[in-house]
């Protein structure tokens, strides 16, 4: 009986898809919950470095749903920090998403920053 309980727990933990990177796991993006935010497509030269880093890390288009950020099939846990949400990326790189009027500002710990706007697409 105890073995079965342990096996069940093991299966549940494995099913969560944790990949060993703190605050990060494989997940399907929710179909309706939260809002889709995307890098400003005007992409002025000053924002290009931040947009490139965001693209590499999947933050160029995300769903923000409460304290979770969905970047592709990755769910990132965030913590509340300075009026925004802080998240940890790979190898010590961090990011901070801060409200800026109708938009959001994505600030990387390496200094780059860019504007994100709520996606306008038929009913999504």
């Amino acid at each position: 009986m105890r073995i079965h309980v342990l096996m069940f727990i093991a299966i549940v933990v494995a099913g969560c898809g944790r990949n060993g990177d703190g605050g990060k796991e494989v997940a399907r993006t929710p179909s309706h919950a939260g809002d889709v935010w995307e890098a400003d497509k005007l992409e002025d030269a000053a924002a290009a470095p931040a947009t490139v880093i965001a693209f590499v890390n999947g933050l160029h288009v995300v769903v923000l749903d409460g304290s979770d950020v969905y970047a592709g099939t990755t769910r990132l846990s965030t913590t509340s920090e300075s009026g925004g949400r802080a998240l940890t990326l790979s190898n010590g790189l961090g990011a901070h998403i801060v409200p800026a009027g109708d938009a959001m500002e994505l600030r990387f710990s390496s200094g780059e920053r860019m504007t994100m706007r709520k996606q306008k697409r038929g009913g999504k």
């Binding site: 060993g20 693209f55 590499v56 160029h60 970047a71 592709g72 099939t73 990755t74």
Partner: peptide, 12 residues
Amino acid sequence: GKADIAGLHVGV
């Protein structure tokens, strides 16, 4: 198998 590109994973 664990890496992602722009947040997207294989194996899903």
